[in-house]
Amino acid sequence: MSQGSGEVDRPDRGQGSGAVAAFLEQAAQVPATVPAGAPRLLFAVDATASRQPTWDRAAHLQATMFESAAGLAVKLLFYRGFQELKATPWVADPKRLQGLMGRVTCRAGATQLARVLDHAAELAKGGDLKALVFVGDCLEEPPDAVMAAAGRLTLAGVPAFLFQEGHDPVAGPLFAEIARLTGGVHHPFDGASPAHLKALLAGAAVYAAGGWSALKDWEARTRPPLRLTSRLGGR
């Protein structure tokens, strides 16, 4: 799987619409603007039918990641429908990422978190992937398969930040275990409070760009409503 910022990563074409596929192909033709060696963050979002409100909210708030961490490159990865998993090129422009997200609509389907974790582990082979951020609410996959994929991400040395909307009793413990294994964070948020998701996305971006000390300094300056340092435990 290529990490080149001018190529579209498509783990699987699935049953996606031709319009989305065509748009991603068009996006891939835009000249690369991501600096060599820039820290990279994989931003994965559950785009199944129930996630439309969160998708729209994340699309609006994703600029927070760029505003909080200069020089960060972000790749959007989403799943939806029947085994559809797609990724955009690496981008370093919040407006471009918002445009990519704005072309995607949510569709009914099962979760594919194991594939997200495996894709992150594959991207990590390039050496510049600093964090995986996942936004979702539930888990409908065999736990053993998900945890095996989490183990592969752990070996790749990439922390997973899992931001869970709501408190699904099945997903919560598994998300927490993935975060523990990878050295990341599991943090629930209230879907009615965009400020919480904004703070979580910003904090994860700061960590990806500068690590623990940068996150600690950023939280001391901005005093966000949700703090990741309390969950990371000084890593």
Rank of each mutant, 00 (worst) to 15 (best):
G37V: 01
E25D: 14
G81R: 13
L85Y: 05
A110H: 12
A124F: 02
E25M: 04
L132A: 12
L153P: 03
V20L: 05
F78M: 12
A47C: 12
P39E: 03
Q83T: 05
V45Q: 10
Y79H: 15
M101Y: 10
G151H: 12
T111Y: 14
L100G: 05
G16V: 07
W55C: 09
A110L: 14
A87E: 12
E84L: 02
V30I: 10
K95S: 12
K125F: 01
T154A: 03
G16P: 03
C138V: 06
F82L: 03
V74K: 10
Q62A: 01
L100Q: 15
E122C: 00
C106Y: 08
L61Y: 04
Q112D: 07
V146Q: 02
R103C: 05
L117P: 11
K130H: 11
E141C: 13
K86H: 13
W90K: 04
E141Q: 15
V133L: 14
G126K: 00
P143N: 07
A22P: 00
L24N: 00
F78Y: 15
A114L: 04
A156K: 01
R40I: 08
A131K: 08
L42E: 11
V74G: 04
L100S: 07
A108W: 14
R80N: 11
L77G: 05
A121E: 14
V74Q: 09
P53F: 13
T64P: 00
P94S: 14
L76S: 06
H60P: 01
W55S: 05
G157H: 09
V34N: 01
P53K: 11
V91E: 14
G126N: 01
V20I: 10
A38T: 10
V45Y: 04
A110P: 04
D46G: 10
V104N: 11
L117W: 11
D93V: 05
G109Y: 08
D46H: 10
T54Q: 15
D144N: 10
L155N: 06
Q112A: 08
R152I: 04
A73N: 06
L77E: 09
V91N: 08
W90M: 13
R80T: 14
D93K: 02
